[in-house]
């Protein structure tokens, strides 16, 4: 079943989850450059982690039957480093991912995810490893993210998570799609421009 893309307020997410293990997984691996040859994001879902998947011949987490329909991804440290391509979060989202939890995220990747309504939450190394083994023990269990509580829980365990306040507020209030907010400030934008020497003959 295809899920809808994120929309409006994001207060809770639930679903099955799986693990992509490893530090410093870069966006070239999430979506290899040859798939950037497109003028629309729509086909990217099938191409997520294409090269890693090819190498593992059907045994990659994104190919395993048990993970079909899962929407929560658990990763490790510095996930999404490298190229700024928004194709990476787009590919994950179009495959079905709606939430990513890990030790840490690269900055541009984090922002790109936020801009399309995919929360990236963090926790300590130990807690992530614990979460990963809980997930691996039983891939069928359903997890619930409670954004207000900053926690993720299954039927008996609950883990605390972190999210910086700005991102939290944007997701919770549904204002993660920034364009309209920015456009509201037309007058102030013009005022800022008027004070920039390089746009005003260095006066």
């Amino acid at each position: 079943m295809k899920q809808e893309f994120p929309k409006g307020e994001i207060k809770s997410i639930q679903g099955r989850s799986f693990v992509i293990k490893g530090d410093d997984i870069d966006t070239d691996r999430i979506i290899p450059a040859r798939f950037l040859k497109c003028v629309s994001f729509s086909a990217l879902g099938d191409q997520v982690f294409a090269d890693d998947r090819k190498e593992l011949k059907g045994n990659h987490p994104f190919d395993l039957d048990q993970n079909k329909g899962a929407n929560i991804l658990i990763v490790n440290d510095n996930f999404g480093c490298g190229s700024s391509r928004e194709h990476a979060p787009q590919a994950l989202m179009r495959w079905g991912i709606r939430l990513i939890i890990g030790e840490s995220f690269a900055e541009i990747f984090f922002g790109n995810c936020l801009a399309i309504g995919i929360p990236c939450l963090t926790s300590s190394k130990q807690e992530i490893i614990r979460l990963q083994s809980l997930v691996n023990e039983n891939p069928n269990q359903v997890w619930h993210l409670n954004l207000k509580e900053l926690s993720i829980a299954n039927h008996k365990e609950k883990l605390k998570l972190n999210l910086e306040e700005g991102a939290y507020k944007m997701l919770y209030s549904g204002k993660w799609d920034a364009t309209s907010q920015l456009l509201d400030e037309e007058e102030r934008i013009k005022k800022t421009m008027k004070n920039l020497p390089y746009l005003n003959n260095f006066k």
Binding site: G111, N112, A115, A178, T179, Q181, L182
Partner: peptide, 18 residues
């Protein structure tokens, strides 16, 4: 600084970003 495509959209539309 580098930005993602959603921010490219924001800059085109408003010449600013968050």
């Amino acid at each position: 600084f580098g930005i993602g495509t959603s921010q490219v959209r924001d800059v085109l539309a408003s010449q600013s970003l968050a």
